[in-house]
Design a protein around this nucleic acid. Sequence first.
DNA 1: CATAAAAAAGACATACATGTATGTTTACAT
DNA 2: ATGTAAACATACATGTATGTCTTTTTTATG
Lengths: 216, 216
Amino acid sequence: MARMNSQSRSSQTRQALLDAARQLLIEQGYARLAETRVCDRAGVSRGALRYHFPEGLLDLLPALLDELIDIEGGKIDPAGLFNPRERMYLALYGLAHAQGQTDSLAVLELWMAARGDERLAERLNPIMDSADRRIFGFAPDAPFEPDLLAWRLMLHGASLHVFSLDYDRAKLTAALQWVLKQWPMPESLQQKLAARRAEATASASSESTPNTADAG
Amino acid sequence: MARMNSQSRSSQTRQALLDAARQLLIEQGYARLAETRVCDRAGVSRGALRYHFPEGLLDLLPALLDELIDIEGGKIDPAGLFNPRERMYLALYGLAHAQGQTDSLAVLELWMAARGDERLAERLNPIMDSADRRIFGFAPDAPFEPDLLAWRLMLHGASLHVFSLDYDRAKLTAALQWVLKQWPMPESLQQKLAARRAEATASASSESTPNTADAG
DNA sequence: CATAAAAAAGACATACATGTATGTTTACAT
DNA sequence: ATGTAAACATACATGTATGTCTTTTTTATG
C-alpha cells in the first residue's frame, strides 16, 4: 500500500470497514454479518476493526446507519431546497427512474436486526428516529398527514421490491408511473422546478443542479 | 401431558415447533433464530426437532413458509371467491381495519434469510414463487398490469410499517383509507359484495361469510 | 405381557463468532 | 536516530449453534 500520513490512512481503513459492512449487509443480510467477514472483505484484521470500533459491530453498525441516512438524504435533495412532501415525490420519482437503490435494504436489515438485539437497538433506534427528519425534512412536531404516510408506505414497498425474486426494473417503473399518475406532483414542486428550468436556460452553464431536477 | 395416540401427539409437537419458530421469527428475527431456542419455546428437545425435521431449520423453515402462505391466503379469501385484483383490494382493506398482520413479517424474514444462505434459498425460493398464486390467485402466465404491482407495493409497505418504531394503528388506517379513496374498489368487487349482502339479508342466518365480506 | 417401532431426549464433537489480551509495525516529534 | 503513541495484526479462551450419534420413553401390535 502506498505511503501516506497516519490520519488519512486511518480514516481510509475505517471507511473500508464501513463499506464492507454495507456490502455484506446487502448481499447476505444481517444474519451472516460477522466481524471476521467484514474484516476479510475490507482487507484488514480484526485488530483494526476493534481499534476503530472497540465494541465491534455494536459500534460499527450505528456509524454505518448514520452514514446511510446521510447518503439517502443527499440523493434526494442534496441542496436542501425542498419540503417533505416535495422530497417524497422526488424520492418515488427517483426510484422509478434511477438505478440501484440498494442502500435502503441495508437500513431495513439494520432495523430488523435491532428487533432481536436489545443492546443494538439502544444504539440504532435513536438514529432511526432521526431518519425522517434527515432524509425528508420532517419537523419533529409536524402534524400528521395521511397522504404523506401513504407515500412513505409506497416508497418502502417499492424499495423492498427491488430485491424480490421476480424483480423487473421495467415493471417497477411502470407500476410507479401508474402511482405517480394517480397522485399528482405537489403544486409547489411544479413551481419550483419550473423556476429552476427557467433559471437553467437563462444561464446555460449552471454549475450544480440537483440530480432530481428533471423530475416530471 | 395427557395421554394420546402417537399420531396426534406427534403432529402436535411438530406444530408446536412450527409455532415456536414463527413466534421467534417475528419477535427476534432470523438472526437470532436457533434450533435450541425453537426447542425451548416449543417445550421439546432438539431430538424431537431433528426427528420431525432431520436437517433442522433447513427442513423446518420451508414447512413454516408453506404454512404461512396458506394462512395468508385463507385470511384474504378463504372460500376462493375473488380474483387477484379483488383480493388485493380486500387485503389492503383488511390491513387498514383488522388487527395484527404479524405473519407477513415472518415471511419477510425468511425472504431476507434466503439471500444469505444458498441451501436455504434452494428450498425457500420455489415456495416463495408460489406465493402470489396461492395468496392472490395470480395465474403464472397472467399479463403484467402496472396497477396490480402498485397495489402489491403498497401492501408490502404497509405490512412492514406495522413493525416500525413510530407505528400508530390509527395513522396507518388513515393513510390506507386515503389510498383506498384514491384507488377505488374494482367494479366487479362492488357487484359481488352487493350480491352477497342481498343474499345475506334474504336468509338472515347464513352460516359462513368471508371475514372480509363487509368491506366498503 | 413381550416386543418392535415410533417418538422424544440427551450427550458429545466440531465449527464458528466474539471478547480480550498481547505483539508488531508505522508515523511523527524531538 | 530514537523514543513514543497511534494504528494494525495475531493469538487464545469462551460461549454458542450445529451435526451426529446413542439412549430412553412412549405407543402400537402380537
